[in-house]
Simulated assay, not measured.
Amino acid sequence: MKIQHREAERHVLTVVVDNEPGILAKITGLFTARGYNIDSLTVADISEDHAISRITVVTGGPPQVIDQIMAQLERLVPVHRVTDLTDEGPHVERELALVKVRGTGENRVEALRIADVFRASVVDTTTESFVFELTGAKDKIDNFVALMRSLGLVEVGRSGVVGMMRGSEGS
């Protein structure tokens, strides 16, 4: 049995939809009904009149599965456009994380030092803990969280991936 590397199959899809009740349920239902996994999901209103939203879905699968997912998404009535950023070319991906770390003494100093290296901001502090805000690629956030585990990691909240094509054209 051949095992495929999961990262090679990863795709970032953007779906531009009407901002209406139930659309997110329709899209996640499509994935669920067909047994596709969603690794990350973000949704936000992107128009001035609040009529359009952008959904970013990170999923995985061979090209024929991704093509099938995109075709099925495009058939949903309130969907305007589906783009596979991974196949389209150079794109930017970012994620936001809030990371709570408990620590005093040397651990506290070390947590601050590492946060500085990763360009994480302190957004809340007490005498016994910090909440750091960090943005960047998934690997950067994963590495920061891993380093904080030994220093008193309490909790992590992540936004999921948001992506967009590079250059002057829209996706």
Rank of each mutant, 00 (worst) to 15 (best):
2 K>L: 14
5 H>P: 05
7 E>Y: 11
8 A>S: 15
8 A>H: 09
10 R>Y: 07
11 H>E: 09
12 V>H: 00
12 V>W: 00
13 L>Y: 04
18 D>R: 12
20 E>P: 05
23 I>F: 08
24 L>N: 10
24 L>A: 15
24 L>S: 12
24 L>V: 15
25 A>P: 03
28 T>M: 05
28 T>S: 15
29 G>K: 10
31 F>L: 09
32 T>D: 08
32 T>N: 14
33 A>M: 13
33 A>K: 15
35 G>F: 07
36 Y>D: 11
38 I>L: 14
42 T>Q: 03
42 T>Y: 06
43 V>K: 04
45 D>N: 15
47 S>N: 07
55 I>C: 02
55 I>S: 01
57 V>L: 12
58 V>G: 03
59 T>G: 05
63 P>T: 05
67 D>Y: 05
67 D>P: 02
68 Q>N: 07
70 M>C: 15
72 Q>D: 08
77 V>P: 05
79 V>L: 07
81 R>L: 10
81 R>G: 07
81 R>Y: 04
82 V>W: 00
86 T>F: 11
87 D>N: 15
87 D>A: 15
87 D>T: 11
88 E>R: 13
90 P>G: 06
91 H>T: 01
95 E>K: 03
95 E>G: 03
96 L>S: 01
96 L>M: 12
98 L>I: 14
99 V>Q: 01
99 V>H: 00
101 V>Y: 00
101 V>S: 00
101 V>E: 00
103 G>C: 02
103 G>M: 07
104 T>Y: 13
108 R>Q: 12
110 E>L: 06
114 I>D: 05
120 A>R: 01
120 A>S: 09
122 V>T: 12
122 V>C: 09
124 D>K: 08
124 D>H: 10
125 T>L: 13
126 T>F: 10
128 E>N: 14
133 E>D: 14
133 E>A: 15
133 E>P: 06
136 G>R: 01
137 A>H: 13
139 D>L: 14
140 K>Y: 02
143 N>K: 04
143 N>L: 05
144 F>V: 00
145 V>D: 01
145 V>K: 04
147 L>P: 01
148 M>V: 08
148 M>D: 03
149 R>S: 07
150 S>L: 10
151 L>F: 07
152 G>Y: 08
152 G>K: 11
153 L>I: 08
154 V>F: 09
156 V>H: 02
156 V>L: 05
159 S>R: 06
160 G>F: 04
164 M>E: 07
165 M>L: 12
166 R>A: 13
166 R>Q: 14
170 G>E: 12
171 S>L: 06
